[in-house]
């Protein structure tokens, strides 16, 4: 592996903010645990999104004040949340009918690895002795119309998370549409990974160096100003 020079891309908050720009008004959205949860903080003014939490609530609102939580009003991460005006509660088969039946517009998930054909691994490192746990991730990637991944570009050790093929057990095959990392926004296309946008101050070579599969350059906009 070549020695990597230090590079400062987007923070977690900036990644979430960048992703939020791409969600149209009125979409029904499921946010995974971790960085995906941050997206809700950055929805641009004038847009309303409806958040789905798979344990049985549409119209999920932010966490209540400390101490004001109801143990029977929680999100998929088992944290206290609120229900906004227009919210609805439902049982698990209905909740997953929304997911598996293709009714939700967008699922935002974290990743261990994304392959250039859109395969996603995000539930298990396959370590012997580890307790396997999957939750709703496989249902989300199989059923929701669009799947966005938000993740650091590399692991803590500098290993690429965007790869030729996933070495970890898959969550789904050919399911990821777009990846938002600290270094770039990258589409999964029939030709492979294509850079849509580099983070400010980051160049293409730097991103390629940290990616385990070939990157295609951004398509030149038809009318550059």
């Amino acid at each position: 592996m070549t020695e990597q020079t230090a590079v400062k891309g987007r923070t977690r908050e900036q990644m979430a903010q960048r992703l939020a720009l791409d969600i149209p008004n009125g979409w029904y959205v499921n946010l995974g645990i971790g960085i995906p949860e941050l997206v809700a903080r950055f929805v641009p003014e004038g847009r309303t999104l409806v958040y789905h939490t798979e344990n049985g609530l549409l119209g999920m609102g932010p966490s209540p004040d400390e101490g004001a939580g109801d143990p029977e009003l929680i999100n998929a991460g088992k944290r206290h949340v609120t229900a906004l005006p227009g919210a609805a509660y439902f049982h698990h088969a209905d909740s997953f009918a929304m997911i598996r039946g293709g009714h939700l517009d967008l699922s935002v998930l974290g990743a261990l690895q994304v392959a250039h054909n859109g395969d996603l691994a995000n539930w298990s490192t396959g370590e012997p002795g580890a307790i396997p746990a999957v939750g709703g991730a496989m249902d989300l990637v199989a059923g929701v119309k669009k799947v966005f991944v938000i993740t650091q570009h590399t692991t803590r050790d500098g290993a690429p998370k965007l790869v030729e093929s996933c070495s970890y057990p898959l969550t789904g095959q050919r399911v990821v549409d777009r990846v938002y990392t600290d270094l770039a926004v990258i589409d999964v296309t029939p030709e492979g990974f294509r850079v849509v946008e580099l983070s400010p101050g980051v160049d293409f070579e730097t991103v390629q160096e940290r990616t385990g599969a070939p990157l295609l350059p951004a398509l030149t906009p038809a009318s550059a100003d």
Binding site: E54, H92, A93, F96, P132, G135, G136, A137, G143
Partner: peptide
């Protein structure tokens, strides 16, 4: 013993 099932598949199997 553990039988691990995706959450939506678990719900649908029960339904």
């Amino acid at each position: 013993e553990l039988e691990l099932v995706p959450q939506g598949t678990l719900a649908e199997r029960i339904r």
